[in-house]
Design a binder for these strands. Structure first.
Lengths: 340, 340
DNA sequence: TTGAAAGCGCTAACAA
DNA sequence: TTGTTAGCGCTTTCAA
């Protein structure tokens, strides 16, 4: 068993409340008393029991982060943003991997909300249609969403009374930059390697892709897009098939950097040089995008900043759950490298 | 404020203790009573207050993971192993990034040990000599180390009374496999791209590298190794310099996959074809090792298994802190791909 | 099979 | 400036 405040109080011959005051730096305390207490604390090696404190104050100073998979470098970066900001404000972070599974997510939410965390940050699930939180089971806890689409937010808003808080990067704009870059490079036949629908974030990229092509009077067609799970193993085969079916393509716009890598493999397999025979643009700018050969042109999402903004918003929201928090749409940016 | 056990008890017209029994599935309870209680629980939406429970039981069912940077894909994978195992056993995981900084680490340890977590898993710091934990400040909390060297463990053991628990992969063996593979491929002049000394894990690779070359009567020399921070930006320049200084090299053994990527860039810059002009072997087998072009031959460390074993060991240790836990040295494995 | 009372270690109100 | 008292919501004796 460890040292309690009471023991410190006895040791320092003061009341327990005085110790509490010293520990929390509150109230006016005479210098000599404070010194005595401090001395007792260090001598006994006292450390406050956070569980007891949390029980009284109803605040655990922990927040939860629900994420599909922390191994995904994109999510890892966001988590660092959250974590660094949380730490600055005295919060700890509990990460729960959901593997993009609704039941896992609900289970995690339930576990965390049992007064364990003061709030939650979560991505909307990727591979399925967004569902309104099950009011029967899912607890009402201050929550900040990341990168949710207006549509899924509308669904959410309909299901809850309190205002929804969402932090997003400007995916549509980023996707436009990518496709416009390819057009500017003189490409007229551009294919797209896309994620599986319905993905809350795919739609924005699709729309941008179609919009830009249409605006430039370039050919576009549903058949110019191939949909797949964003996994490298599938990407290579899918990209190869797409290029074989559309030999006119001189460029590919990819849903994310992993798919872009798959496309690079496909080009290697087909003997197509990058970027001369086929230009490739990715999305996210994960760490290794700069490291592959040739380095990947991609759209950078400000991942840490996304996490930072989410954490800040959550801290506000935990202080005042009813507050309507307005957040800027974070800027995305085209990073031009060797693959275009 | 949320529903308490007392309210459930009143609603179900039983004592608070009976509710507790139902919630925790303990003791014999008549079917009808249990039903009534269950009904009250779901109707009121009761969820136990974990802080209160932790206060009484002295167990928070949370564990901490101290890591340099969760964005490093190697650490992320280990964390998944920990997390999945922890979840199976009812534990949550708090991740603290230390950026390989001693003060950060101590601060995190102090914060977590204030009865917040029941135990901690940590990597030894990489870039500095291992230090004995400061007994004044660092709290004594069940701890499991990952991938510590015998030397650093000895230092630790001297400073603490309780037995040290450490989970390791067989780095030396893996490094041997890598260099032996290069030798078997006919390479006689093999350089090494190494991390910065003193790194607790570099030594094992160095020793393996020298041992294998010596055993085969191949030339080895301290000047055949270049030391640098394991960052891509530095790696390319360092590899280039090494290859220019030693034109006889036909193969490079790299400290990790990031450095290997840097070496690949250097080869591209020098117009050396991989693997015909220069073979490259990495270490770790991070996710993108298979994704680069050509795919990287590398030594796989069982990252998730490392995390899993660490979590299991910690769970044992938390149950019985004095227990001496014997753990197997986890097997490393050479994954041969296109870069050799 | 069920219940009453005590207390985990802390903070919050109110006194002194 | 300092102390006293009463809980926070739960589990743990012990008793019925």
């Amino acid at each position: 068993m460890s040292i309690t405040m009471r023991e410190v109080a006895e040791h320092a011959k003061v009341s327990i409340k005085t110790v509490s005051r010293v520990v929390n730096g509150e109230g006016e305390i005479s210098h000599s008393t404070r010194q005595r207490v401090q001395h007792a604390i260090t001598q006994l090696g006292y450390r406050p029991n956070l569980m007891a404190r949390a029980l009284v104050t109803q605040r655990s100073y922990m927040i939860g982060f629900l994420v599909a998979d922390i191994c995904n470098p994109f999510f890892a970066e966001v988590s660092r943003g959250i974590q660094d900001t949380a730490k600055e404000h005295g919060y700890h972070l509990i990460i729960a991997n959901t593997d993009d599974d609704g039941d896992e997510e609900l289970a995690a939410l339930n576990a965390l909300s049992a007064r364990l965390v003061d709030g939650v940050i979560k991505f909307n699930r990727q591979t399925t249609t967004p569902q309104p939180p099950d009011q029967q089971n899912a607890p009402d806890i201050p929550t900040v969403y990341i990168n949710s689409t207006p549509e899924s937010l509308a669904t959410l808003a309909a299901a809850t009374q309190s205002p929804i808080t969402n932090v997003s990067a400007d995916i549509y704009k980023g996707a436009r930059l990518a496709v416009e870059h390819l057009v500017a490079k003189g490409h007229r036949h551009i294919g797209m390697l896309a994620g599986l629908a319905p993905d809350v974030n795919l739609m924005r990229r699709r729309r941008a892709y179609f919009d830009v092509l249409r605006e430039h009077g370039l050919p576009f067609d549903e058949s110019h897009i191939v949909h797949l799970l964003p996994r490298l193993s599938d990407a290579q085969a899918a990209a190869k098939q797409l290029l074989l079916a559309n030999p006119q393509f001189t460029a590919l716009f990819c849903y994310n950097d992993v798919l872009a890598l798959g496309a690079m493999h496909a080009c290697a397999e087909l003997g197509r040089k990058i970027p001369s025979d086929c230009a490739i643009v990715g999305f996210d700018d994960v760490e290794y995008a700069a490291a592959v050969l040739p380095p990947l042109t991609t759209v950078r999402i400000p991942k840490r900043e996304l996490g930072r903004q989410a954490a800040l918003a959550l801290i506000q929201k935990m202080a005042n759950p009813a507050a309507k928090i307005n957040l800027p749409l974070l800027k995305t940016e085209l990073i031009v490298r060797g693959s275009t």
